[in-house]
Design a protein around this nucleic acid. Structure first.
Lengths: 344, 344
DNA sequence: AGAAGCTCCTCAGACGTTGGAGCTGTAACG
DNA sequence: CGTTACAGCTCCAACGTCTGAGGAGCTTCT
């Protein structure tokens, strides 16, 4: 019954107040545990509220307090694949757990319907139904991100946005991680002719992971033999790129696991053995890489951890509480499995 | 916040009205395209609103209209694995796309914090910040579901709940599907000694899929050789169950793909070949089964389609519009891949 | 005893929006 | 020319909550 009385009408503070014999204002204070109300009255109010199944109207509260009590998780359209990606689930899981602990609602804003001219960003701004937002996997040149920032809505970005110097961001050091992964193939497995399948280069992640790869091959003086092909994080593209190439390489660094898996299936169909003929390493570790055969070695990105930190940061931002950081990188870890030659 | 003017104050209808030279009420009607307002005025209001960056307060509107403009997607705690499961993403994807088309917000309600005594269900009821809810993967005996139903909150359940005769539900015919999958192993691949790894039996899905299996083996008179082991939808359990068993079977029907994968790794470590020695079939097709080696044959459950239908149904329910169905099953499809012996 | 101080509550109003009822001016009509 | 009709607005009130100001009743102090 919760929000409805026996008569079907909503139970409001007024109803509780009438039953207790005081005013709605006093009830409000009682439920807020204000010290302006006597313990006895508080107790009575609480009892009656429970009896009647009183639940406060979030709309009224939001209006009065000028605070929605909710945060938005924004996912740009560009990343249709992101949504179909377990990355998002890790993020969502982290966001909701923190939000729950703070009695905050989580709303999902996607802009699947660009047709109607409203992006996810606008949707949040329009609605004004969130006190802040977490934005993930945005493209580098997304002017709506700038607008969102400019709007003053509390915002925390997950990922790296070097050009947005004022933004609060949390991400991983993709360049270093990619460099380390590449060096692993070189140092541990002795690969010298490397292929890199990039992510979309309009995303910073794509650029950084490519740059890390390039740093590594350059440092080892094997840049001349290195091949860089532009991909888009999709399995299909990973497959197609490898399928359309000769066999002049002995190691592949893919910018994510999906492309690594695409590469794996392509290599399989070309009859090239992994890892003996071609060592393969991916990026992300959101689930896929662990279950393939051979299991794909990868750089594990702690998506949930980032989401948790981002959400905590956002809530502090909203509350105007002091914060420890403005730009933060979390540590990745390396999962050397079978596809690079490490695993059993 | 987009809703703030240069001075930092929120832009309200009053501001727009003052600028146009009419009252807020007229503005409201103008923006609602009411025919009580002249086209010229409407035009003026729209222009000024755009100029000022006016965005309506969702809280005020919700309060006035007694309508939140949002729906909740509820995920019970019991299914921690569900949240870590791509099933949820398919559902979320379907829900958001429909909700977006109807200018409705989606909020996620999980009850990760049972510690504080509030389940996801209560959370939605408490907040009153959703006009209705979609509930997925609830256990059979979940009295809070009953309470939620009793509360009168518009509700659509995804899954099968035979005991809740009044509830609006959408699901798949798990029993028939499971029977068909089992029969496939029997008829097409000639397996006679079958093992079934069940889902959690406090979920209807677990029960129905087991019953379908039993129907099939009974119909073919091979029930005596059949083994049924109780699982919980987890990969670990699937692995453990198979690992702890002899090799007296030549086919496995797992109640979901995770358990099928667990079974696969266990078989691999025991040196039993799939599909030649043991044919394997799973259930769900949410992503995992396609990428393993061998790829796992499975029953494809159209999660996104269910979510879309559920959301459309919910929105109609909220609006009091006529609806076509109250209990509905969507069709599954069969993906016979390598693990049963079909695929290349 | 009067004033001061405290406790515990009431009162009024506002948050921003919206719908119904009411008002005003012009056009149409007899 | 007076009435009716209508378009096009204004006015009022309310949705449910919360806060600051104020007041009533009691105790305590000088």
């Amino acid at each position: 019954m919760a929000a409805k009385s026996a008569t079907g009408k909503r139970v409001t503070l007024r109803d509780v107040a009438a039953r207790v014999g005081i005013t709605p204002a006093a009830c409000s204070m009682a439920l807020a545990d204000s010290d302006r109300i006597s313990p006895a009255t508080k107790e009575a109010v609480r009892r009656v509220a429970a009896e009647l199944g009183y639940v406060g109207s979030s709309a009224a509260r939001a209006l009065r307090k000028q605070r929605a009590g909710a945060i938005a998780l924004i996912v740009p359209t560009t990343s249709r694949h992101v949504f179909g990606h377990s990355y998002f689930m890790h993020v969502l899981s982290g966001v909701t757990s923190v939000a729950n602990d703070h009695d905050t609602q989580v709303l999902i804003a996607t802009n699947a319907d660009t047709a109607r001219g409203l992006t996810a960003y606008e949707r949040v701004m329009r609605s004004n139904s969130a006190d802040g937002a977490i934005l993930t996997s945005a493209a580098i040149e997304d002017e709506t991100v700038d607008r969102l920032l400019a709007s003053g809505l509390p915002l925390v970005l997950i990922g790296n946005f070097p050009q947005l110097t004022d933004a609060i961001t949390i991400g991983v050091d993709d360049r270093s991680a990619s460099r380390a992964a590449t060096e692993h193939l070189i140092e541990v497995h002795g690969r010298r002719r490397l292929l890199h399948l990039t992510g979309p280069l309009d995303h910073q992640t794509g650029v950084d992971r490519r740059d890390g790869f390039l740093e590594a091959v350059t440092a080892y003086g094997i840049g001349a033999d290195a091949i860089v092909l532009e991909g888009d994080f999709s399995e299909e593209r990973g497959h197609a790129l490898v399928d359309g190439l000769g066999d002049t390489y002995d190691g592949i660094v893919a910018a994510n696991d999906d492309m690594a898996f695409g590469a794996l299936t392509a290599l399989r169909s070309r009859g090239r053995a992994v890892p003996s003929e071609v060592a393969l390493i991916g990026f992300d570790d959101f689930g896929l890489s662990r279950v393939t055969t051979p299991a794909i070695s990868t750089v594990s990105v702690p998506a949930e951890e980032m989401a948790v930190a981002a959400t905590e940061r956002l809530l502090k931002l909203i509350d105007g509480k002091p914060a420890e950081w403005t730009r933060r990188d979390v540590e990745v870890s390396f999962r050397y499995r079978q596809s690079c030659g490490c695993g059993a």
